[in-house]
Lab assay of single mutants.
Amino acid sequence: MEVRTIKVFTTVDNINLHTQVVDMSMTYGQQFGPTYLDGADVTKIKPHNSHEGKTFYVLPNDDTLRVEAFEYYHTTDPSFLGRYMSALNHTKKWKYPQVNGLTSIKWADNNCYLATALLTLQQIELKFNPPALQDAYYRARAGEAANFCALILAYCNKTVGELGDVRETMSYLFQHANLDSCKRVLNVVCKTCGQQQTTLKGVEAVMYMGTLSYEQFKKGVQIPCTCGKQATKYLVQQESPFVMMSAPPAQYELKHGTFTCASEYTGNYQCGHYKHITSKETLYCIDGALLTKSSEYKGPITDVFYKENSYTTTIK
């Protein structure tokens, strides 16, 4: 009895394709271990004539594949690729409408935090270190965002349907971005203890939790000093293409032309909904596939993004 075979390709990165001759009487799992086709788990399936010449994702289970996976995804987590594939199996079914010149995501599976993050990423200057993220990001900007969303979920250790947080998501993504040249110098002034300067680099240099107003941050924000008295913390120097200011959701007025974009969060910790506000020729609110415009805006804002380049204080 002759062994019926077909020729397929296996890959971990969709760049390096490895030619395989597979036995049609055995499952993919018996031949390769966990195997995925377009995100779908085909591990328990036997090869079919229609699979001839198709590319299958496999887990990096030998040295060659491990090197290829690390170079593309910059992670050695053995569960990463499987999590990416199972997320992709959902995100490829989502709709990605162009809204006001940006790629958004039609609401499904509690994905409003991903839509808000995706919209924000198209408006701030950011370059990702893992080629996987950078490639998928370019495709997302062009309207094909399924891979990018699935990668975000995998890097953030999230599953489809789980509630997510924009600030946490951005923080994970910033860790995989090139923020080497970003720098922030802060000064804390206390009447009792004097003053202390701190220099922050990388992710810490672009994120701040405690106030939404970048102007206020430049002037000074009140913080408790270690001595128990009130101290003032203010920005001395900022070198970065953008800054992200966050605070627990509270009524906040966004003035046209003073910011790049913002995240609105309605609801409580267990259950809520994100919308995205962007400042173009007027203010726009993007909620999944829905767009509304207004000249002014007041609502429960939790993150505001500002364009920056270089700032030095005039406070002496």
Rank of each mutant, 00 (worst) to 15 (best):
K7V: 10
T10N: 09
N14A: 14
I15F: 15
L17P: 05
V21I: 11
D23P: 10
M26D: 13
T27I: 11
Q30P: 07
T35F: 11
Y36S: 05
L37T: 10
D41V: 08
I45C: 13
K46A: 13
H51L: 05
K54S: 11
D63F: 10
D63L: 07
V67Q: 14
A69I: 11
F70S: 07
E71T: 12
Y73S: 04
Y84R: 03
M85G: 05
S86W: 15
P97L: 14
N100K: 11
N100R: 09
L102V: 07
L102Q: 03
K106S: 09
A108P: 05
A115K: 01
T116L: 05
L118F: 11
I124Q: 02
N129C: 07
P131N: 00
L133V: 01
Q134M: 09
A140I: 11
A140V: 13
G143K: 01
E144D: 14
A146Y: 06
L153T: 06
C156Q: 09
C156K: 04
N157V: 05
T159P: 05
T159A: 14
T159R: 15
V160Q: 02
G161C: 06
G161F: 03
G164M: 01
V166N: 04
L173K: 02
L179A: 06
S181K: 10
R184W: 06
V185Q: 05
L186Y: 14
V188S: 07
K191A: 15
C193D: 01
Q195P: 09
Q196Y: 15
Q196S: 14
Q197K: 14
Q197F: 09
T198A: 10
T199V: 14
G202F: 02
G202H: 02
A205N: 02
V206H: 00
G210A: 01
L212A: 04
S213D: 13
Q222Y: 10
T226L: 10
K229D: 14
T232N: 06
Y234W: 09
Q237L: 14
Q238C: 01
Q238N: 02
E239M: 11
E239C: 12
S240I: 01
F242L: 03
M245C: 14
S246R: 05
S246K: 00
A247I: 03
P248Y: 10
A250F: 08
Y252I: 15
L254M: 06
G257K: 06
T258K: 07
E264G: 07
Y265F: 15
T266K: 10
Y274R: 03
H276G: 00
T278L: 09
T278F: 13
T278M: 09
S279K: 00
I286N: 00
G288H: 04
L291P: 05
K293L: 10
S294H: 14
G299T: 02
P300T: 11
T302M: 00
D303S: 00
D303T: 03
E308Q: 09
N309P: 15
T312F: 13
T314P: 09
I315E: 10
